[in-house]
Design a protein around this nucleic acid. Structure first.
Lengths: 262, 262
DNA sequence: ACATTCAATCAAAATCTTTCATATTACTTC
DNA sequence: GAAGTAATATGAAAGATTTTGATTGAATGT
């Protein structure tokens, strides 16, 4: 097999799977791991993939999985449905803000083709949207938190003070009757600034986030306009959300659920 | 068989299969490998195929990669040498600013392993550096110019006013005795702000940029501290650069790259 | 602390480029 | 139309490059 041909196959596999390990690659292609490493290096240089310890992930041409956390695949279908529900709230030509996070990332993927102004502090989202001509992208700068690739801190907050958006879509780690939580103190500072900049605050969360807390308290429940969640939440949870005056949007139940078709 | 006829067959086979090796080609056509190589060379020149080690691949109708990645390979070796020369100017632990552009991108690539604070308005650079733990990354936000993925405009400028860096590395489209040029008006505004934020302004350019102008005038020559360029510039060019008081750093010539010559 | 995984290096194999002599084609001239 | 000449195409060989798989010590993640 020709060098180029093999490289194409390598890229194809990575593109298909999102992430591969070296061992997995060498199952498909008969050549040494050294060679595969070199191929990964090659595509990495061209920016189509990103090498990681143990393998590589696709980052090229399209909206891609965030290069950051592996939680992405967790509850993926639910996140997609939540993102789709969020999409329905967005009208053409408006200005929205997208927080970092896996669910907002899913939402970003769905925005293609819509004429919008999108503000975000998330590197993966900016990445995916940057080549879309139909979308005006405004990136929030600041200190980049390496773990998730979002901009945080005083610079980000200062920039938010000069920006006003119709809707802000926020992801959180936990929701309890006490309010919303996220895992990082700087992050919640930044998210508070986002909320101040928005007419409407829409929180995206799967039911797993309910009744869970995290390190940093973001705000009381009353500060948000809308919560979009999948329908698998308990009646009690629904009750205290209603009591706090949160507008609750439940996604339709999973249709093709069951059995992760291999 | 006529030459033309054989060449057509060669192209046809490549188009059909996508990839072919030389051996495979010579099964279908009875002539020497030398001749087939010349045929591949012929079609390669016309852009219908791309020669590779061991054979060739069809490219006639394939889509081309976006502008950014394409330009990367142009004068790549020179850019790398320029980037390497720039690297020598950076001391560990310092704060640098990287403009967008292909040469600064090469520089960013070389930064891995150095403990630095890096400020950039370039999405591709931020991408590459975001997971490096040894590097503190500060991203400049703003309107993202889709063509090159850099942040521009008033938001970016406002953010730069709150930042101070030791060295700013800037890429330009043209350099003449009249000064520096770039292709985008918003971009030069932003770059001026970068220059204001830096103690030292270092411009990276290959010799092809000399004596070329572009749409937007950035600044007179006197405003920059240092120009790093490959050594293929004319004596006149060197003269007017010296006259303007620009510190000129020439990279070593391409061929004579010392180092690990075995 | 451990087991992986990585980057760097090396030698062998494959392939490439260059060069040259020969064969073929095209063109000129008579 | 035939012979001679220039231009191009071909095949083969030598030396330079590239690719590859294996091996090493270093770096990384649990």
């Amino acid at each position: 097999m020709l060098t180029e041909e093999r490289r194409q196959k390598v890229l194809e596999i990575i593109k298909e799977k999102g992430f591969v390990s070296l061992g997995e690659l060498s199952l498909h292609l008969s050549c040494s791991e050294s060679t595969l490493r070199r191929d990964l290096e090659y595509w990495d240089q061209l920016g189509h993939i990103k090498r990681t310890h143990g393998g590589a992930m696709f980052t090229g041409e399209q909206l891609v999985m965030p290069a950051f956390e592996e939680r992405v695949t967790e509850a993926l279908e639910e996140k997609r449905l939540i993102a789709r529900a969020a999409l329905d709230l967005i009208s053409d030509g408006s200005v929205i803000l997208l927080d970092g996070g896996t669910t907002t990332f899913e939402l970003a993927r769905l925005l293609t083709g819509r004429s919008l102004q999108v503000v975000t502090n998330s590197l993966p989202i900016a990445n995916g949207l940057s080549s879309r001509r139909e979308i005006d992208l405004i990136l929030l700068g600041g200190y980049i938190y390496p773990k998730t690739g979002v901009a945080l801190g005083p610079l980000t907050i200062a920039q938010l003070e000069r920006i006003h958006v119709r809707q802000a879509f926020i992801g959180v780690s936990g929701i309890t009757p006490k309010g919303l939580f996220n895992s990082n103190l700087l992050l919640v500072e930044t998210e508070r600034a986002m909320m101040r900049s928005a007419d409407e605050v829409i929180v995206l969360a799967d039911h797993g986030k309910l009744d869970r807390t995290a390190l940093a308290h973001l705000c009381p429940l009353g500060d948000i306009s809308t919560l979009i969640v999948d329908p698998q939440l308990s009646p009690e949870q629904e009750a205290w959300l209603a009591k706090a005056g949160v507008r609750l949007i439940k996604t339709p139940p999973l249709q093709g659920q069951e059995g992760g078709a291999a």
